[in-house]
């Protein structure tokens, strides 16, 4: 009994440390995206690229919806509902892939410039590319968590990897919350 209590206490301590480490990583990663955002406004304060407005709007809705399902997956495992967790995380993965298809597969080929054509194209492809890379790594992370969930590795008491995947996924969403208006809505289209 004492060993079980000790093991739980040890897990709790590890979880607290891991959580703090994850947030420190998130903050450091936020500086990278912050730098890109500042570069965009420094180079083109009152202008923006002429992009497909509807596509930008739809991919934003897709990413927000994926965040909602990730939240549900997190909540489900917190209450020990493994089936609900795997179902919701699978929907999140599919929506993440759809977002990637929207940005990389549809937006990039139809953008009014090519890679490295001018400063605006550079900042556009760097911002969306860096973000897409994070979405891709998030999808890989979620797939690993989904697979482990299917194997029954997570429970109500022990599920920190799910929480970590959720925090990372929501962070990617927060970045897009700022990138979407910065790239699609603010300034005069040129």
């Amino acid at each position: 009994m004492t060993t079980q209590v000790e093991a739980q206490s040890n897990y709790k301590f590890k979880t607290d440390s891991n959580r703090l480490g994850l947030w420190l990583f998130i903050i450091s990663d936020a500086f990278v995206f912050g730098g890109l955002l500042v570069s965009r406004f420094f180079l083109f304060a009152g202008e923006r690229p002429e992009l497909n407005q509807w596509l930008g709007f739809v991919v934003t809705l897709i990413l927000l919806t994926s965040s909602f399902f990730m939240y549900r997956a997190d909540i489900n495992i917190s209450y020990g509902n493994v089936k609900g967790f795997t179902r919701n995380i699978l929907i999140t993965i599919i929506l993440g892939i759809l977002f990637l298809v929207g940005v990389v597969g549809l937006e990039w080929p139809t953008a009014p410039f090519s890679v490295g054509e001018n400063a605006m194209s550079s900042i556009f492809f760097t911002m969306t590319g860096m973000h897409a890379l994070h979405v891709l790594s998030g999808v890989i992370f979620l797939t690993i968590v989904y697979r482990n969930g299917k194997k029954g590795l997570y429970s109500r008491e022990r599920h920190f990897p799910v929480e970590a995947a959720a925090i990372y996924w929501h962070f990617v969403d927060v970045v897009w919350v700022f990138f979407y208006p910065a790239l699609y809505l603010m300034g005069r289209a040129v």
């Binding site: 979880t15 703090l20 109500r156 929480e163 959720a166 925090i167 962070f171």
Partner: peptide, 13 residues
């Protein structure tokens, strides 16, 4: 969604 308050007071369960 990110439950930022968990950093200041842990609540795994």
């Amino acid at each position: 969604f990110m439950h930022v308050t968990r950093v200041f007071g842990s609540s795994e369960e």
